[in-house]
Amino acid sequence: MHISSDSTELLVQRREAMGLTQEDLARRTGLSVRMISDLERGRTRKPHPRSLQLLTTALELDPSDMARLASGRAPDGDPAAVPGPPGKPVAQVVVPQQIPMAARHFAGRDRELRSLTALLEHQGRHAGLAVIDGPLGVGKTALAVRWAHQHADRFPDGQLYVNLRGSTPARLGPDEAIADFLDSLGVQPDQVPAGLPARSALLRSLLAGKRMLLVLDDAQSAEQVSPLLPGAAGCLTLVTSRRKLVSLVAHHGAHPVSLDVLSFQDARASLEVLLGHSRVVAEEEATAELIKICRRSPLALSTAGAHAALHPSMRITTLVAQLPVQPGPHLPGVELF
C-alpha cells in the first residue's frame, strides 16, 4: 500500500484544522510521533493498513477522504474500504457505538445522573471511573445506559459495552471481555495476545489518547473489572454491580453511586410513560396501591406496567386485584404473571 503526496497534505491539513499537534495525534492513535512525522513528510511510502485506520478514526475523516489515504482508487462500489494486502479482505473503520437501547419509561434518578455528569469535569486530567451498585432490579443498567446516551457526544472515539454476567454461573472472564473489545477496536484475531496481562496492556495502549466510554455491566468483582480499565485521561468507565466493589473505590478512586428503590413520584412517572397519563390519573388510588405492592422497584413496576400496557382495556384496579400482596421474597413483582 502506497500513500500518495496529496494524502500527506490531507493528514497535515486535517490535523491542523482540528488544532492537534503531532504529539496529540500520537496519543489519540497510539502511533509514535516519529511515525506520524514520517507519514506527513512522505517518508513512509507503505504504511500498515491498521495505522491508516487509526489515523482515519482519530482525524474523523469521511469515507471519501479515507480512500485518498492510499494511492489509486478505492475498490469500485466501496469508497469507504481501506485496501489491504493482496488476498486479504479490505478493512473498514467503524467507531464502536455499542450502548444498548435506553428504556423509554426511565424516570427519576436526577441526583445520580448529575453525580455521573460531574465526572466529565475531570475528563482531560485522568481516566474516570464510577461504580453503580444496588440490588437486583433496582435499575443499575438502566441508569448507566441512560447516562451513556445522554453524553455520547462527549466520547467521539466510541462507546464500548459488555455484559460481564457476574451474577450468573456463565460469568465472563476479563480475558474474554478484553478480546471482545479488541475485536471491536479492529484488532485482528491473530494479533490478540494470549495472556491476560498482555491483552490488558494492548487495550490500554489502544485507548490511550482517546475519548471513549466503557460500560461494564453486571460485574461480580473488582478482579473481573480491573484489567479492562483504561489507564490514561480522556476515557470514562461505568461499572454496574450488585456488590459495592470497595476495592475499586479504594485503589482506583472510583466514584460510588448506590441505588435504592424509586420515590413514589418517580414510580408514578414511570407508570405514566407505560400506561399513559389519562389512564393513571383516572385511577389514582389503584395506581398508588400498585406502586405499594411493587415496593417502588423499577423492575417490578415495569413488569406490572408492561402487563397492563398489553391489555389496554384492563383497569388498574383489576390488575392490582390479580397481584399477591407479597409477590416475591427477593424482588417483589418480578414474577407477577
Rank of each mutant, 00 (worst) to 15 (best):
322 Q>Y: 09
66 M>D: 05
43 R>P: 05
202 L>V: 08
49 P>D: 00
145 V>P: 00
100 P>K: 12
173 G>E: 14
180 D>G: 14
221 S>T: 12
205 S>W: 14
120 L>I: 05
186 G>D: 07
34 R>G: 13
217 D>T: 13
23 E>F: 14
311 H>Q: 11
242 R>Q: 11
150 Q>H: 15
166 G>A: 02
335 E>N: 09
178 I>A: 02
169 P>F: 03
179 A>W: 07
216 L>W: 07
148 A>R: 09
263 S>M: 10
153 D>P: 04
158 G>D: 06
71 S>G: 14
297 S>W: 14
99 I>N: 04
334 V>P: 00
182 L>S: 03
65 D>C: 12
67 A>W: 06
246 V>I: 11
35 M>A: 15
107 A>S: 07
295 R>V: 09
19 G>R: 09
151 H>T: 13
235 C>T: 06
105 H>L: 08
123 Q>W: 02
242 R>C: 05
313 S>M: 10
53 Q>T: 13
61 L>Q: 01
148 A>M: 09
158 G>P: 08
36 I>R: 05
300 A>Y: 01
335 E>H: 11
40 E>A: 04
213 L>V: 09
283 E>C: 02
107 A>G: 04
120 L>F: 12
254 A>I: 03
266 D>L: 04
323 L>T: 00
319 L>A: 01
161 Y>H: 12
274 L>S: 10
169 P>Y: 04
77 G>A: 05
328 G>L: 06
60 E>A: 15
308 A>F: 01
27 R>Q: 13
182 L>I: 03
46 K>T: 10
118 A>Y: 11
277 H>V: 13
64 S>P: 00
87 G>Y: 01
86 P>T: 06
114 R>Q: 13
266 D>S: 10
125 R>D: 13
211 R>H: 08
233 A>Q: 02
200 S>D: 03
99 I>E: 04
113 L>P: 00
302 S>I: 11
243 R>H: 09
288 A>K: 00
129 L>S: 05
79 P>S: 01
15 R>N: 00
66 M>K: 11
180 D>L: 14
236 L>E: 01
225 V>T: 14
188 Q>N: 13
132 I>W: 03
36 I>E: 09
131 V>F: 11
